[in-house]
Amino acid sequence: MSVWWEHVRSLLSLRAHEHAALPDLRGLESRRARVERTHFLADDHERSHNGDRMYVLRREPRNSRDASSIAVHARGRVVGYVSDSHAAGIAPLLDDLGGAALVNGLGSTAGSSRLWVELPAEDALREFVGSYEAA
């Protein structure tokens, strides 16, 4: 359902981004990070879902709060943002990939509403960007 919803959102917003067209960073070395500035609260049904989730990182260069802002999308909606300290390092590399990419997320853990995302390590992402541009 999440892929379907992202496709509908893309059509409605007149964006060309579809999951198949986005660079897939899920296989890169990564580190777990909290999703910041979220107003999204995971309900019991979502907390009961175990395993990885697919998230989309999308750059928001016109964000008035921070020019290196990266939004975390799940099921076609923004669920929060990458922390400013992490975003500063990976934002330029994400720009080189077109401004959006697929990553894994962990949703929340039992008894918590905190969301987590797997952010690619800067060195691994830099290497990926180099090979992506060459392809």
Rank of each mutant, 00 (worst) to 15 (best):
M1E: 09
M1P: 11
W5M: 07
E6W: 03
H7A: 12
R9C: 12
R9D: 04
S10A: 14
S10Q: 11
L11G: 12
A16Q: 14
H17P: 02
H17T: 13
E18Y: 12
H19L: 15
A20K: 15
R26L: 12
G27M: 09
G27K: 13
E29D: 11
S30H: 10
S30V: 06
R31Y: 13
R32P: 07
R34E: 10
V35P: 03
V35Y: 06
T38F: 03
H39A: 11
L41D: 03
L41I: 14
A42S: 11
D44N: 05
H49M: 10
N50L: 15
N50R: 12
G51E: 00
D52S: 13
D52R: 14
D52Q: 14
R53A: 02
M54Y: 00
Y55P: 02
V56K: 02
V56T: 09
L57T: 02
R58H: 09
R59Q: 12
E60R: 15
P61S: 09
P61Y: 10
R65V: 10
S69T: 06
I70Y: 01
A71M: 04
A71W: 03
H73T: 02
R75N: 13
G76P: 05
G76A: 07
R77C: 04
V78S: 08
V79R: 00
V82Y: 02
S83R: 03
H86L: 08
G89C: 13
I90S: 05
A101S: 08
L102I: 14
N104H: 10
L106G: 12
G107A: 13
S108I: 00
T109Y: 05
A110T: 05
S112W: 02
R114K: 09
W116R: 01
V117K: 00
E118N: 14
L119T: 02
A124M: 03
A124T: 08
R126S: 10
E127N: 09
F128S: 00
G130W: 01
S131K: 14
Y132W: 15
